[in-house]
Design a protein around this nucleic acid. Structure first.
Length: 575
RNA sequence: CGGGAUGUAGCGCAGCUUGGUAGCGCACCUCGCUUGGGACGAGGGGGUCGCAGGUUCAAAUCCUGUCAUCCCGACCA
């Protein structure tokens, strides 16, 4: 490709609306351009990168035995009504009506469609297992798209779905996908960690996420997930799913009697603990949540934080948020109190389900809200002063240096970008949508399903997050838009131009993806652009060409060597 | 949907307080000069100042509304 003809506009400055480095660099280097909020044009360089990633994904998926197909982007509401997700999915599902007023939606994922394909096409256990996948744009009307390609509303995704006759088959399909995913990201030049995860809105039981860890860069807030991992045994999990053994802390308040005391203006645990001169771990915190429209009071030890996904799952909920002040007021009215947040306690609450984290069980002589403003109950004990809730579960957020449940070593935390996700769905969709096959005994049974996603466009952005420097992108070779760029320093110099053309033509003939920077620009512009767009190798033809020498630069390391043009060509051919 | 901010040329911004009919840098076009890390000179093109009302002789500027975008929380590939 001749640079003078390549459709790319690099910018001298970073775009003002970009926050994370992948977004800034992809815009500045001319890879993407925003069309509207969370929706981007993939310009020619970007499209080449995406196709590279797609091809790696295709090769590995095909090698795993999966078959590619393509499902419609627009889907009828009927299928979603069957699965029950028309109501459940919420506003992320982009709904629309056709001219006949029939309700449709833009596909955010394709469980419903694939299940309909499975139930029509798979009649017998003899056809199983089957794994079908597609690579396609998805649309999710995200509440807040941000970070460029890392969280768009429209994005490119590979989604695969497996059908098996039994759980053992699913385990096998799942394992095959886990291995394929590991290879895919490796080939893309991305180190990933496979971590346990909550299965979220897709449903099902077991789930793992493939995370690109980005904690090395302190400035980087692109990693939206906290990943807890054990340095010793390899346990790792998303914070929404992680479990731990807690370190020993003081759980006895050592109050010599149980009584209500004045605690003015202590709205937070910190204020209360400071006021009473006690550790926060002897306070029982009570938070009011709204889960699917129902009130829940969650109790947890004062030094710990509620993990909202775990709390929501404890009630099989779909939606969770902390209660607003007016909602707390309503609860207080029903219960005959008038306390505000900070002084709420479980005793006497009406119209509220109460759940406790395991951490509160062992509290003795502790401090707890008593639904009176500016007062707390100190020296409380379960069963005497306050009833211990029936429902006790792990609803807490893991913290760094908690102990690993598998090996008791301390856990660490890091930020991760989720580039892939695999789920064991089980029969969630096959049962709801009556998708069955005839098993060996002739009985109709629902498919045991799994689903497996890779964010193609997000993977590209994650690669930029991990591979860049102050000058620009450093694409891993396997997903770079071009392999090499040939830069004649001066377009005035006939020898330089001639040699550059010769190198270019040799590489072209050898089917190498090569750019010749034939623009009438000064050297600085061409060299800066080469660094910015991040082509893995650069062959610079400058003055030393009189000694038959060119400069060969590797972008990943910025290492340069001076060699002959022929040697430069052979080095590229040897890649 | 809450909290904060911003909309002026393709990009980055100034002008707004104190109304007088739009400017700078980059990019773009022409010519000259220049060619190892985003040169220089001269000339040129491009903007209904987000949109709609209002106030005024006069609005980018003041007022009201509205839309969009960005940042902080609930979503997830």
């Amino acid at each position: 490709m001749r640079m003078s003809k390549l459709f790319v506009q690099t910018l001298r400055e970073f775009p003002s609306d970009a926050e994370v480095i992948s977004h800034k660099l992809l815009v500045r280097a001319g890879y993407i351009r925003k069309l509207t909020n969370g929706v981007y044009n993939y310009l020619p360089l970007m499209w080449r990168v995406l196709k590279k990633i797609e091809n790696i994904v295709r090769e590995e998926m095909d090698a795993s035995g999966a078959q590619e197909l393509l499902m419609p982007f627009v889907q009828p509401s009927e299928l979603w009504l069957e699965s029950g997700r028309w109501e459940v999915y919420g506003k992320e599902l982009m709904r629309l009506k056709d001219r006949h007023n029939r309700e449709m939606c833009l596909g955010p994922t394709h469980e419903e469609v694939i299940t309909s394909i499975g139930r029509e096409g798979i009649r017998s256990y003899k056809q199983l297992p089957v794994n079908l996948y597609q690579i396609q744009s998805k649309f999710r009307d995200e509440i807040r798209p941000r970070f460029g390609l890392l969280r768009g509303r429209e994005f490119i995704m590979k989604d695969a779905y497996s059908f098996d006759a039994d759980e053992q088959g699913l385990d096998k399909s799942y394992e095959i996908m886990a291995k394929a995913y590991t290879r895919i990201f490796e080939r893309c030049g991305l180190e990933t960690k496979m971590v346990q995860s909550d299965s979220g809105a897709i449903g099902g039981s077991v789930s793992h996420e493939f995370m690109v860890l980005v904690n090395e860069d302190a400035e980087n807030n692109a990693g939206e997930n906290d990943v807890f991992y054990c340095t010793k045994c390899g346990y790792s999990a998303n914070s929404n799913h992680a479990v731990s053994i807690l370190n020993e802390v003081e759980t006895d308040g050592h109050f010599d009697c149980a009584k209500i005391v004045d605690t003015p203006n202590t709205h937070s645990i910190e204020e209360l603990s400071e006021f009473l001169k006690i550790p926060s771990s002897v306070i029982c915190k009570c938070l009011i949540y709204v889960i699917d429209g129902k009130y829940v009071a969650a109790l947890i030890r004062g030094d710990r934080t509620i993990e909202e996904t775990k709390l929501m799952n404890a009630f099989q909920g779909n939606d969770i948020r902390i209660a607003r002040n007016d909602e707390i007021e309503e609860i207080m009215n029903i219960s005959g109190f008038n306390a505000v947040a900070g002084f709420i306690g479980p005793k006497g609450l009406k119209g509220v389900e109460i759940i406790a984290d395991e951490t509160v069980k062992d509290l003795k002589n502790f401090v707890i809200g008593i639904n009176q403003n500016d007062k707390h109950f100190v020296g409380a004990n379960w069963g005497i002063d306050v009833e211990l809730p029936q429902k006790i579960e792990d609803i807490r957020l893991v913290e760094e240096n908690d102990k690993c449940v598998d090996c008791n070593a301390p856990l660490k935390v890091t930020k991760g970008i989720e580039v892939g996700n695999i789920f064991k769905l089980g029969t969630k969709y096959s049962k709801a949508m009556n998708a069955t096959f005839a098993d060996k005994d002739g009985q109709e049974k629902p498919f045991i399903m799994g689903c497996y996603g890779i964010g193609i466009s997000r993977t590209a952005a994650a690669a930029v997050e991990r591979h860049h420097d102050e000058f620009g992108i450093k694409w891993p070779l396997a997903i770079a838009p071009y392999t090499v760029i040939v830069v004649p320093v001066s377009d005035q110099d006939e020898t330089q131009m001639r040699v550059a053309e010769e190198i270019y033509n040799k590489l072209l003939e050898a089917k190498v993806e090569v750019i010749l920077d034939d623009r009438q620009e000064r050297a600085g512009v061409k060299l800066k652009d080469a660094d910015l767009i991040g082509i893995p190798y650069r062959i610079t033809v400058g003055k030393t060409i009189k000694d038959n020498l060119v400069e060969f630069k590797e972008r990943a390391t910025n290492n340069m060597v001076t060699i002959t043009p022929d040697e430069a060509v052979s080095r590229i051919l040897a890649l």
